[in-house]
């Protein structure tokens, strides 16, 4: 990538203006969310709406915690567990399989790789109904296993790691390790895994965010006993009676972990998105 090199054109004030406007549009819904989350319930119906935050976040979030039906705190904890477990597993298995596809020779490699790429097109919706029945048969209905185990590997992850491993790891390095007597797993563990770290980091971030945000399947299989945070949000917002200050306080709290991840790892995420784009 040629990020650092000189560009042809110089940005004009108009460019800055347009970009600032785009940034504001990007941020406004977040800002609106925090305004409502920190103000009294009544402001949601105020015309015109307020444009500055207030001091009632504590009250609002207190009501979220008191709301047994939505079980928000459980949702938050469950989402952390689910997202971490899925992320670690996806990164691990993707690195392993990606390495095998990129650097090991075995019969049927290309066909298997093609199969993996092909499965990226299969929508969740296609599997969801039998999956539901399967989970119930196994007694996994409304358990966290049901939202973790089926997602422990992704075709995207394998594909991404394979692409990265192909270019980032030289065959000589692997040959050298092999000649030195390393078994394949040892090679993976001590030579390949460290080299895959940057890609693993990006894959991990993307997987974490995807899992944190996933909705359709958790919404179908989980209930108010074992919600993820998104299911809690949906439960909070679809009641007979919607306390928007409460819902927005919860939404803000559910969004903050992601924003933190984003602020800390933003560069890597952006790099990952852009690099993935060029490879594809």
């Amino acid at each position: 990538m040629s990020t650092g090199s000189k560009r042809l054109w110089q940005a004009s004030p108009l460019t800055y203006g347009a970009l600032i406007l785009a940034s504001l549009l990007s941020l406004f819904p977040f800002y609106f969310m925090f305004i409502v989350a920190t103000r009294k319930l009544e402001v949601i119906n105020a015309v015109p709406p307020p444009f500055s935050p207030g001091g009632d976040f504590g009250d609002n979030f207190g009501r979220v915690l008191d709301n047994e039906h939505a079980a928000f705190l459980y949702g938050l904890i469950n989402s952390v567990i689910v997202s971490c477990a899925v992320t670690l597993s996806v990164v691990f298995f993707s690195a392993l399989a990606g390495f095998a596809f990129a650097k090991l020779r075995f019969k049927g490699r290309n066909i298997l790789l093609l199969a993996i790429v092909g499965t990226m097109m299969v929508p969740t919706q296609l599997a969801i109904i039998p999956l539901y029945g399967m989970m119930q048969d196994w007694g996994w209905g409304a358990t966290l296993q049901a939202v973790i185990v089926p997602f422990m590997v992704t075709a995207f992850g394998v594909f991404m790691m394979r692409q990265y491993a192909s270019s980032a790891i030289s065959d000589e390095l692997i040959e050298a390790a092999r000649v030195d007597g390393c078994g394949t797993f040892r090679i993976f563990w001590s030579v390949v895994a460290p080299a895959l770290r940057p890609a693993a980091g990006v894959l991990g971030l993307l997987t974490f965010m995807d899992t944190w945000n996933s909705f359709l399947w958790p919404y179908a299989i989980l209930d108010s006993d074992t919600p993820t945070v998104q299911v809690s949000l949906a439960l909070l917002s679809s009641a007979y009676y919607t306390d928007y200050a409460q819902v927005f306080a919860a939404t803000a709290v559910a969004t903050v972990p992601l924003l933190l991840v984003f602020v800390v790892f933003g560069r890597q995420i952006i790099g990952g998105i852009m690099e993935g784009a060029v490879k594809a």
Partner: peptide, 19 residues
């Protein structure tokens, strides 16, 4: 600017939809 414009992408769909 890149961070700003891609920020919406990290939010959950449910949160976006509620807002």
């Amino acid at each position: 600017f890149r961070l700003m414009i891609v920020a919406p992408n990290v939010t959950s769909v449910a949160a976006v939809a509620i807002v």
